[in-house]
Nucleic acid binder design. Structure first.
Lengths: 341, 341
DNA sequence: TTGTAAGCGTTATCAA
DNA sequence: TTGATAACGCTTACAA
């Protein structure tokens, strides 16, 4: 291997390796002109301090890991974008891991990350009703962890969430005000905290308006597009809801497709509202009423929270919770007098 | 730091560090029962070989870097998803870098990555008419690089692209066949190879049908949503095109919004076709005719190509080019007799 | 202000 | 089959 390293650079300049090293660090004492000389020569030879050697020596990686259930979801790509920006501003890099909503992958990622590869983790969990106590089992090597959006409630760690209960309540209320009486709630994972919280808002809103709660109207969907198509179509034909509230955007899309196929008119026969960060919700046919989460901001705040912990030397590691507000944006999919755009 | 390392594990088991190390590597000779003993104790103590120490020793990082212009684009999130899967199958991790179409960030990322942090790079370039010779300037430390989709033609490196010229030609032809006579071409970066290739298909199709080429109908857009809104509205009102071909999906969305505002009816007054990997193109109002690139597959293939290079020990580093086929999917935005869904 | 040298946690070589 | 040891490239006391 004929690549450049600190020794060769030192030889080329007739200096010691420590002096070279100092030129690349901000704190150390070094003659300004020597530093300049070194940096220019370094640039010429394309020298960069080896990341792994530095990290081994310093015992930190300047890297954070981001674990998300999926990538093909506007919410997560926006959140990652926010995280990436904050990370870069702090001189950190980000590793991305996608669990595809598979719990075992999540466990593996987390376990693996405890080998020093990352200084901290930002995660939206993949859930299922599994044992997530594994997160507590890393003893002294415990990595700072920040949850965002999808969390495990029994794990005490800082988190950034949105006011899901309230949003769900308002969303359901909105459907009721628009005249819906049989409102189906479509969810991917009932047992996941986010599913439960959102569902409770739905249930309480029904109660407020004295609408009967029908267990069957809670439709548990899957992660497969094809399966969902079948599930939703049969729900629409058999249960005959006049309103649908979906907990993730892809279920709203699936419902649109199902309605197209079944010749159900939105919003006349069926009103739809969904959690979604889709920027082109106004362009759908009909435009989709959404509960829009501040996705980028959630990412930004989660990253800031992690950097807070990292810079406090593990001192005040008290769990913090930040709750951001989602917005309901009413559009034609829940309107009684839809406007042409 | 009281964290576990190979030495402590060795002490705990009354073995040498070399034996421990061997238990974690596949090649070395080691007694099966010793190995088992070590691995179980390791699990108990949550020991994992330190990634940075291994990498320093082995001179490789088992990490690849992915550089993309943006994340809030279905094409790139799908491509990354493909890359991530292949990487994981190969035991590699991925670092994500977003340039926001900023050339200087791209240069910085690449320069930085030459510190051993990654074993290879997969990149879709951010372009602009800049000097990209910097990519050749890393001498012995040159990292394997694979381009996908947006490339620099003058850099000789393996690449995965789609048949953009042909797709553009067919897209333009399709608009013409549907009756468009004044077709605007909306592009973000004329000078980028992908912009040029796609534009040439447009120009040649016009020629085939003896339609006049009007320079003004090439509309150079920006990366700002607000700016584009202004640019597109003035283009629509002043140039009065009856067809629009957009080179990236967000320009199609911007055109939809502009048409809504200006009361231009799609497809009656204006037909639209766009490059896009949007899975819900059929749900738009009207459903959007797209040239759909096999995004996930492009990512998968780019990753495979990189791993080919990595496993061949830099031997046969001859530039390869893989061309995948996009599909034109006709929908209502270019139809003369739009169907209700 | 600069140089010397030890050590970060691992793995490969060699010897036992 | 296992153990001792040097080396990977860097940073930081400490010495000069």
């Amino acid at each position: 291997m004929d690549s450049i390293n600190i020794k060769k650079l030192a030889e080329a300049l007739n200096l010691s390796t420590s002096t070279i090293s100092r030129a690349f660090r901000d704190n150390s004492d070094i003659n300004a002109s020597t530093k300049e000389l070194i940096l220019s020569k370094a640039k010429e030879l394309n020298y960069q301090p080896n990341h792994y050697a530095s990290n081994l020596r310093e015992q930190k990686s300047k890297t954070i890991a981001v674990i998300v259930p999926e990538l093909a979801n506007n919410y997560f790509s926006q959140a990652i974008h926010g995280i990436e920006r904050v990370a870069r501003e702090n001189g950190y890099h980000i590793l991305i891991y996608v669990t595809d909503d598979d719990y075992s992958k999540e466990v593996n990622f987390i376990r693996h990350l405890h080998n020093g590869r990352a200084d901290g983790i930002i995660m939206s969990v993949s859930g299922e009703a599994n044992d997530h106590n594994y997160l507590n089992k890393f003893g002294a090597r415990q990595l700072p962890l920040v949850f965002f959006d999808r969390i495990y409630e029994d794990i005490e760690t800082p988190r950034v969430v949105t006011n899901d209960y309230n949003s769900s309540f308002l969303a359901t209320e909105h459907l009721i005000e628009q005249g819906s009486k049989r409102i189906a709630y479509l969810v991917v994972n009932k047992s996941l905290s986010i599913g439960k919280t959102r569902m409770q808002g739905y249930i309480d809103a029904l109660e407020k308006y004295k609408l009967p709660f029908d267990e069957n109207l809670i439709v548990d969907c899957s992660n497969s597009y094809e399966e969902n198509s079948v599930i939703i179509k049969s729900a629409l034909t058999e249960l005959k809801p006049d309103g649908v509230f979906t907990s993730v955007e892809r279920l709203a899309f699936a419902t649109y497709y199902a309605c197209y196929d079944l010749n159900i008119s939105i919003p006349r026969d069926l009103k739809i509202i969904s959690f979604s960060s889709l920027e082109i919700a106004p362009l759908l046919n009909p435009s989709l009423t959404t509960i829009t989460q501040p996705a980028t901001e959630i990412g930004t705040e989660a990253a800031k929270m992690l950097f807070d912990i990292l810079s406090s030397d593990g001192d005040k590691k008290r769990p913090k919770e930040l709750v951001l507000q989602s917005k309901i944006i009413m559009r034609n999919s829940t309107s009684n007098s839809p406007q042409k755009p």
